[in-house]
């Protein structure tokens, strides 16, 4: 009996691990479709809209990569993953790239054998409470019940924060944002904690956002970014430089609307290299020269993506803050295209 069960386990493990670590970009091209690990539904970052089309800040990056690699931003299949399943999905090869509000940490980068190729959103963990609770600071939450997503860094930060402030709490473990929101609204917990951006996104989808406040304390650093498997450096480069192309585009004032015009008229050598007018940037990462141009044309530059999905004009209403370009006091800084 021992033996049979062991075999079962090993079969499962063997099959899961069976996906080869060979070039992901070839797999994607052969398949004609990019498989992107996304959120199960976090409005503004990654969620299907009323027509079933995926929309959001993270989703846009998936579409940019599809445009760069396959030439069509719609050739993406989105695989919804929870905080618990996302890394297994990536490690087993079920998804090509994971763009799902995932925090870059030492152990994930090393022990889990992943590469965080860039940071598309600099975030931090916050708390949301109902206004009528009368809480103005996270330090007043001693004894509270807190909803927390399992399998996340926020889970560990939460324990550390309460310990450091000599407070106690009762955790309520939930699987994803929608479950967390339901439990929080039902009053199963006093506070809901996750990345501040996630809180803002959750609040925007509530019936009465004005009755909920996000507490001022940010208790952690949460650099969120696209993740690929460790060892396939070429694929990592493609994802990284597609993202940086979008950032550079914002810096250079290239938008989805004017990209063709800029490509035709610009005299700035970096812009010309970026848009593939001269040089052979694309060939160096195994793509054609116009990969960045297609990505920008498909989804717009970093600033456009931000404003369209989570910016101040949207219900989520996030300020650029740390995510402004470095030239405007933020942290978004693309290495030179040279």
């Amino acid at each position: 009996m021992h033996k049979t069960i062991l075999i079962g386990a090993l079969t499962a493990a063997g099959l899961a691990a069976g996906a080869s670590a060979a070039a992901t970009v070839d797999d994607v091209k052969a398949r004609g479709e990019l498989i992107c690990g996304s959120n199960t539904g976090l409005t503004g970052f990654g969620a299907p809209d009323a027509n079933g089309n995926w929309q959001g800040f993270d989703v846009a990056l998936c579409r940019a990569i599809a445009a760069a690699v396959l030439g069509d931003p719609n050739k993406v299949r989105f695989v919804p993953t929870t905080g618990e399943t996302r890394f297994t999905a990536l490690a087993s090869g079920e998804v090509d790239v994971l763009i799902r509000n995932s925090t870059w940490t030492f152990s994930r980068d090393t022990e889990l054998a992943f590469d965080f190729v860039a940071v598309n959103y600099y975030d931090g963990q916050g708390f949301m409470v109902k206004k009528d609770l009368g809480v103005a600071s996270a330090k007043e939450l001693d004894g509270a019940t807190v909803c927390i997503q399992t399998g996340t860094t926020t889970e560990l930060n939460l324990a550390d924060f309460f310990k450091a402030n000599n407070m106690t709490y009762t955790p309520v473990n939930v699987q994803d944002d929608s479950q967390a929101q339901q439990q929080y609204l039902a009053g199963a917990c006093d506070a809901y904690t996750t990345d501040a951006s996630g809180l803002a996104a959750s609040r925007a989808t509530m019936a009465d956002p004005e009755n909920h406040i996000i507490l001022p304390e940010i208790i952690s650093k949460e650099p969120l970014g696209p993740v690929v498997r460790h060892g396939d450096n070429n694929w990592g480069d493609i994802v990284r430089w597609t993202f940086y192309a979008l950032v550079t585009a914002e810096e250079k004032g290239i938008t989805a609307a004017n990209v063709e015009e800029v490509a035709a008229s610009s005299t700035d050598p970096e812009v010309r290299r970026l848009l593939g007018v001269e040089g052979d940037m694309g060939a160096k990462i195994g793509l054609d020269n116009e990969f960045a141009k297609r990505a920008i044309a498909a989804v717009g530059n970093y600033g456009e993506i931000f404003e369209a999905n989570i910016g101040e004009a949207t219900p989520i209403g996030l300020a650029r803050g740390l995510n402004a370009l470095w030239t405007q006091g933020g942290l978004q800084y693309a290495p030179p295209f040279r």
């Binding site: 033996k3 090993l10 691990a17 670590a21 460790h230």
Partner: peptide, 19 residues
């Protein structure tokens, strides 16, 4: 042989992932 193949597969894949 089936058991050996599974074990070998597991070991190889763990090694390939550096785990």
């Amino acid at each position: 042989l089936a058991v050996a193949w599974l074990l070998n597969n597991t070991v190889q894949n763990l090694a390939a992932k550096g785990k």
